[in-house]
Design a protein around this nucleic acid. Structure first.
Lengths: 203, 203, 203, 203
DNA sequence: CCATAATCGAGACGGTACGTCACGTCTTGAG
DNA sequence: CTCAAGACGTGACGTACCGTCTCGATTATGG
């Protein structure tokens, strides 16, 4: 029989289903950005999410499962730059998007993960596919358009150009630990397009 | 099966002093390249070195101490490219050295460490100084010479150029997981010097 | 083949009310005999009864409640030996009943419980009352009749005799793990009545 | 900030080897008597012994190993009654020893264990051998002597007599929860030797 | 050549965090 | 209204490492 005054405590209702999942995966992304793949532990994620660790283990038995899930649902926000009819603008736009990604918790986490655990095949598969989508699919189309417009030689090594841009962004962000400002991005694009040597064409 | 000769066991004598240190620090570098900073553990280093873990703890109480020591003695092999009187050759030489470093166990370990654990201040201090020496000191001089020769505008953003080259190498090595071939390096240098766009000057 | 008539699935209807209770409490007795008080768990009882654990918790919130209920309804089958006009026969009859109880699932469970968890006050209260009823109420009357008939000295320590018989049965059943045969019971009664020493009177 | 008074703490030295074992196994016996076999947990034993749980697991991986070890070293204090040339005295002495054992922590623990987990073969083997030694080996000899002296018929069922005595003691201790006084023991022995019925021979 | 100190090996122990398990509570939906 | 089904919280357990401590063995060094 219940106490007549049984106003129990007004405890907020348990998180269940979607809300529960949402809260946990958000915590994963935060934790990933904060401490990286290696140091991310399920108990800590659970605590950060205000949830019991057992419940997390039930849904995602391993760290890999958990992170995979977190990255999956966080990748809807991809988006790629649309062509402006000008290669430089397109490249700047693309690089800006990539830079935003690199500086986002999600991007930082994913990249750190890939860099640190490149040896681990699981990690590689996980992050590589994600990065490929982010880095190449959209941009590649822009290059094709630029070649069609005659702004770029047909034999351009697109992969090299993209790698170089991406590498420069990452070097700036992770090694020099500097911000990815618009000015930096424009200078970078100019360098890539025009070259450093004397007989180059300026914008 | 026992050896027919009753040779007692021929146990080699204990490592002491310098030999001991040498063996341990080598193992540290190997371990660093194999599993990275985070997963490197003193007991495992000791076992790989064929040494007792207590002895390692005596000399280097923390993981930081141990790795610092290992990197310190492994950095004598730096060396920088000497000028050839031609910017492109100099850049290729410099990039080749950097690439060798990136692909060496020491470089892989140090870079993975810095990239993955950039959040950790200890790691950052440790590796940043090391990289700065490796990446900039030598190269910078080559650029000054090139400017003096008129191969390069005086307002060239040297830091940007270096960052871009280094970033491209790292992207290739760690993200794309491809080898740093001479061809790749030459293409990279050409891209940086001449630019990607149509009106560029080829080598 | 499906039934042509929309017979929903022939799933047996849910157990409710009395049938539900019956099924659960039976399972409790079985479980009690099988694994004892300590290892008996409500979820397992529920599963054995083919019932949902939540429903069991609703009716009997604690293990004590559940077992108490199970023992209560299982104690109607008590019955005590009726007098035959002869002490030995009466004692054999009484011991036989006690032995049957000891060897029954209910008795095994209850006794194991009392013996093993005598430290637990709940257990003690629960089982002690039950055993007292079983062991003493009926038998005591038989002894009074025997004294009236002059078969027994008036100063006989009835409690001691009963304890000894009961103790011997339990020792045989639980320690020696042997069966409580009629022969054993008769030998036991003879020993108690006539004594072991030389100058005893045989039956 | 460290305390300015660096008085380290005067921590007592670690328990090692024999002292360590001693402390743990003592705690096992206590725990066994306090809560029985089922509820005994290695972590709690470790805490009671003031020792780390991991260290206990290292030496005795399972609860069975631990309890076996504890019982083994606690059985040196067995001792059996020596013959006095009189059957009654011998029996009283033997029963007194048995009673002391039953009331000791060790005996309580072992018996509870056997009673509660009689189904478990491990437990049965463990405790049965121990009890057999305690209950029968010594006593049996006394009966042989009594038969030789003519105090007892040669066809006496020694096992039955011993079981009955032991059973009565256990019933008294565990079911009635009463103390095993000298008076009780003497009354019990008299009952067993002389019988309860009228035509018995008193001591 | 021997004695003594410094160094290293070996193992036991304390300590922390992790992943698992079983239990009991809560919410929701079906009969 | 009762029961089923499942999700979730909660506590304890056993395990895996790591780092510390103690003791014994070996090697280098000074008289």
């Amino acid at each position: 029989m219940k106490s007549p005054i049984g106003r129990k405590k007004a405890k907020e209702p348990r998180l269940r289903g979607t809300q529960f999942i949402r809260k946990v995966l958000d915590a994963v992304i935060e934790q990933l950005a904060a401490v990286g793949f290696e140091r991310l532990s399920i108990p800590e994620v659970a605590e950060r999410a205000g949830v019991n660790k057992t419940s997390v283990y039930r849904r995602w038995p391993t760290k890999g499962d958990l992170i995979r899930a977190a990255l999956d649902i966080s990748m809807g926000s991809a988006g790629s730059a649309s062509s402006t009819g000008n290669l430089r603008s397109d490249l700047v736009g693309t690089a800006r998007l990539a830079a935003d990604f690199v500086e986002s918790p999600l991007g930082t986490g994913a990249l750190r993960m890939l860099l640190a655990e490149g040896a681990n095949p699981d990690v590689r598969n996980l992050a590589a596919s994600m990065l490929r989508r982010q880095e190449t699919e959209g941009p590649r189309a822009l290059f094709d358009l630029a070649m069609a417009r005659g702004e770029l030689p047909r034999d351009t090594d697109v992969q090299l150009v993209l790698s170089t841009v991406a590498g420069a962004l990452m070097h700036r962000a992770f090694i020099e630990q500097g911000p990815l400002t618009d000015a930096f991005i424009e200078d970078l694009v100019d360098l890539i397009l025009s070259g450093a040597s004397r007989n180059r064409s300026r914008r």
